[in-house]
Simulated scan of single mutants.
Amino acid sequence: MTTPRPRFSGPLFEGRSAITLAQLRLFVAVADEGSFSSAAAGLGMSQSSLSEGVRALETALGQAVLLRTRSGVSLTPTGLQVIGYARDALLAVQDLQLAANPARTLSGQLTVATYRSIGQQLLAPALARLHAEHPELHIRVLDAGRDGQGGQRFVSSGEADVGLIEAPDAAGGLLFEVLLHDPYLVVTRTGHPIPLTWAYLKAQPLLLPPLINPANQPVLEFLRSHKALSRNITEVDEDDVILSMVEYGLGITIFPRLGLAGLRPALVAVALPEPLERIIGLVIRPGRAALPHVQALAEAVRTQARQSADSGS
Rank of each mutant, 00 (worst) to 15 (best):
I252N: 02
L50Q: 10
S244D: 15
P273K: 06
V268F: 06
I252D: 02
A261R: 13
A199Q: 15
G173P: 05
I280F: 00
L179G: 00
H131S: 14
D161A: 09
L282W: 07
L250K: 12
L127D: 07
P135Y: 06
G53N: 00
G259Y: 09
V187T: 05
A22K: 12
L196N: 06
A309P: 04
G62I: 01
Q63M: 13
V155Y: 01
T59Y: 08
P4R: 03
H226R: 15
A89L: 11
V30I: 07
V268K: 10
S225I: 03
P292H: 03
F176T: 01
V162Y: 01
A171H: 11
N216M: 09
G119A: 01
T2K: 14
S225D: 11
G72E: 06
G287Q: 04
S244N: 15
T253Y: 01
V112D: 05
R70M: 12
D240S: 15
T59K: 12
P210E: 03
T59C: 10
Q23A: 03
G119Q: 00
Q121M: 15
G148M: 04
N232L: 12
G163M: 01
M245F: 10
P102L: 07
G148T: 05
G44A: 03
L80P: 01
L282V: 09
V54Q: 09
L276Q: 05
A29F: 07
A160E: 00
A228C: 03
F222Q: 01
A300F: 09
P205S: 02
R104N: 10
A160Q: 00
P286V: 07
E235D: 08
M45Y: 06
L80R: 15
S230W: 02
V73F: 09
L185R: 14
H293N: 13
D143R: 09
A39Q: 08
D147N: 05
V82L: 05
I118H: 11
S17W: 04
Q120E: 15
R231F: 13
G72V: 05
I165A: 04
L61H: 06
L122R: 00
V30E: 00
V73C: 09
L130I: 02
T197Q: 04
I242A: 05
A269H: 04
L180D: 10
G15E: 06
T2C: 10
Q307T: 14
A170T: 13
R87H: 14
G163L: 02
L201I: 09
L24C: 10
N101W: 10
Q47R: 13
E177W: 03
